[in-house]
């Protein structure tokens, strides 16, 4: 069973590397951020697998923390970076 976990992990890591391309490429800020979002989800999957592979239950807690903080970057990006312009006003 171990090798199944390992293969799954490897595919996930490869998918991370594929995702990096979008961060580098952009072209918009939002595209980069979306790639970061994908990384968050993949990271959760990787941690859950590692919890099983290394029999380290605390990895699940780390995954829980990541899952809870996953949207923080998106909210911060939209409210702090993207929306902001020198004379911004709130839209309805």
């Amino acid at each position: 069973m171990t090798w199944v976990y390992a293969v799954t992990l490897l595919i996930l890591l490869i998918s991370l590397i594929v995702g990096v391309w979008r961060v580098i490429q952009g072209p918009r800020l939002a595209d980069r951020l979306l790639a970061a979002q994908l990384f968050g989800t993949t990271g959760v999957a990787v941690l859950l697998l590692l919890a099983e592979l290394q029999s380290l239950p605390a990895a699940r807690d780390t995954a829980l923390v990541l899952a809870l903080l996953a949207m923080l970057a998106a909210v911060a990006f939209v409210s702090r970076v993207w929306k902001v312009r020198p004379d911004s006003e709130d839209r309805p």
């Binding site: 799954t8 595919i11 998918s15 594929v18 995702g19 391309w21 979306l34 994908l38 989800t41 999957a45």
Partner: peptide, 17 residues
């Protein structure tokens, strides 16, 4: 389940790119 789950991630990444 595990392998196809990982492949879904790969598909998502390819889609993103």
């Amino acid at each position: 389940l595990l392998i196809s789950g990982a492949l879904m991630f790969l598909v998502g990444s390819i889609g993103l790119v």
